[in-house]
Design a binder for these strands. Structure first.
Lengths: 122, 122
DNA sequence: AAATTATTAAACCAGGTGGTTGACTTTTTC
DNA sequence: GAAAAAGTCAACCACCTGGTTTAATAATTT
């Protein structure tokens, strides 16, 4: 536990990159509701089928989507786990960012103490 | 409040894209600790100065970093607000994803009720 | 067996990415 | 005023992206 998420993390690269396109976010959103095959995924996207297929493959590279071939259909299923690493990074970042104000607060607190006399804290 | 984050969101594209490279995550992390100028940011990255400078510009496009020119130095400061939108998207997505199990749970609950007699819930 | 459906593959394109090098401008320091 | 420092810009490179079209393959339906 409390395992630092390194900035050097190829999985993280792939997950964030996967999230960086509206078509892929749309695919993920719809997969959150349940399994869908490629043509179902492609249909509402305003692009050709091969383009949509490529987007799905980007999601697979990020391990966010898994595919199970069933006859001529490729049924896609969401796999949310890798997203957790991304959330973790953001979360750690936020803590670090907010920690900055905490130390600033502590400093101000110390300064106030200084004016009332030397601090007794160790 | 409760404003749906659309999948069609150019800001979101830029923020996620900004996060999708280790050098840029490293820059953000270090900026979380406080203001730094370009050469300070570039120094620990194993690439030439112009390359690092380009990464900072990607972060600026995502509005995650702001620059204030002070003499010959360009002092960079983190601006975390746009990250909030990304967190929000992920959060909504997670809720949708977990909601799926909730409805499954509700269904199973209903099925159990059915065996004990018709449900009285509306 | 033929037609339809679901999907991949390959070739192509414009434009972006991530990196380099070399030349240049501006500000600070000596 | 010359040298050093902080950055930019432009050109170049290899490769990736996001899209298209056309052709091919595989499974299902008729």
């Amino acid at each position: 536990m409390n395992h630092m998420v390194s900035d050097r993390a190829p999985n993280l690269d792939r997950v964030f990159h996967a999230l960086a396109h509206p078509a892929r976010r749309s695919i993920l959103r719809r997969l959150a509701a349940g399994e869908l095959n490629l043509s179902e995924l492609a249909q509402p996207l305003r692009m050709t089928f091969p383009a949509a297929s490529k987007h799905v493959r980007v999601l697979e590279r990020a391990r966010l989507v898994r595919r199970r071939v069933s006859g001529r259909q490729h049924r896609c299923r969401l796999h949310a786990a890798p997203l957790q690493e991304a959330v973790l990074w953001t979360e750690q970042f936020r803590q670090q960012w907010e920690g900055r104000f905490q130390t600033l607060d502590a400093l101000l607190e110390d300064m106030k103490s200084e004016t009332r006399g030397p601090s007794r804290r160790r």
